[in-house]
């Protein structure tokens, strides 16, 4: 009885507040928009039964998504932004993780702490901090104008460049930590062996260090890519009107246009796109766990 309760309580909680809501999103994505409260015509009515549901089933919200090029452009540009930002984060994060792994043993806990600390501070505040730096009268432009590198202030805030900076900044710890833990476990004698066998340091790095840290690189990339794809705060604070990201589109569809069925359809498709990287990520983690044993 006690064991039953132990399993049943969290199970029931997650079913009601996680699984059922998804079923509702899916259901509403198939219903029609209506000017009422709530603003949709239910597609499924138990009284009419399953047959009526199947007869009236249409995917018009999904067809609408393919017809209006705003949506597929938003999906494509989210993918593009997420992929490039992940790559940039890797380029910034790898040298930091590498430096941490080579730092003296007694520094490492402090360095770890310094990487994790920003993760605990508010995400919103960290994004906000860049608004003051990147704006036309911002600190970056002030410095650049003062040193005479530029004569006209650069427009960075409200462009995609600012979005990239924001993503790299906020997701950097997610990239650094898995790479660092892979590099930390790396056996230093392997690199010495490569150097003894005639590799230059750069060659040893490319041929030994990078391949051996690959599981960390893959994990870090997924940890950045997956949340970035549906990101809302960064594009809406740092991006401009030209920044199309699907999280922002969904938000506006819901709060501004109040078109719940279309917002739900946008969510369903985003979820379908995300299934692929999530499954790949799971598989990478599993392989890693098996290799460790």
């Amino acid at each position: 009885m006690r064991r039953f309760l132990l399993i049943a309580i969290p199970y029931a909680w997650l079913t009601v507040l996680f699984l059922v809501p998804f079923a509702i999103v899916f259901k509403i994505s198939l219903s029609d928009y209506a000017v009422s409260i709530p603003p949709y015509v239910p597609q499924f009515d138990w009284a009419e039964g399953i047959m009526a549901f199947v007869r009236e089933l249409d995917f018009e919200n999904f067809i609408f998504l393919t017809e209006d090029d705003l949506y597929w452009k938003a999906y494509l540009s989210s993918l593009k932004i997420a992929i490039s930002a992940t790559f940039l984060t890797l380029c910034v994060g790898y040298p930091i993780a590498y430096g941490m792994a080579r730092a003296p043993e007694e520094w490492r806990p402090t360095l770890m702490m310094l990487i994790i600390l920003p993760f605990w501070t508010s995400f919103l505040i960290r994004v906000y901090a860049w608004m003051g730096i990147l704006s036309n009268e911002g600190y970056l432009n002030q410095i650049l104008l003062w040193t005479g590198i530029i004569n006209e202030p650069l427009t960075i805030l409200n462009t995609n460049t600012a979005v990239y900076i924001g993503i790299v900044y906020t997701y950097l710890p997610f990239m650094i930590l898995p790479i660092y833990s892979a590099l930390d476990r790396l056996d230093g004698s392997l690199i010495e062996a490569a150097e003894d066998l005639g590799c230059s340091r750069a060659q040893a790095f490319w041929l030994v260090t990078i391949p051996l840290s690959r599981p960390g690189i893959i994990a870090g990339c997924f940890l950045v890519f997956i949340p970035t794809l549906g990101e809302f705060v960064i594009p809406s604070l740092l991006g401009g009107s030209g920044t199309l990201m699907i999280g922002k589109v969904l938000w506006e569809e819901f709060f501004s246009n109040r078109d719940w069925p279309v917002a739900s359809a946008v969510a369903v498709i985003l979820l379908l796109i995300l299934v692929i990287p999530i499954v790949l990520f799971q598989r990478n983690q599993q392989k890693q766990a098996e290799a460790d044993q």
Partner: peptide, 10 residues
């Protein structure tokens, strides 16, 4: 791994 917009909406 769920995007917050989807969790919130659902």
């Amino acid at each position: 791994v769920m995007p917050e917009v989807i969790t919130g909406l659902s």
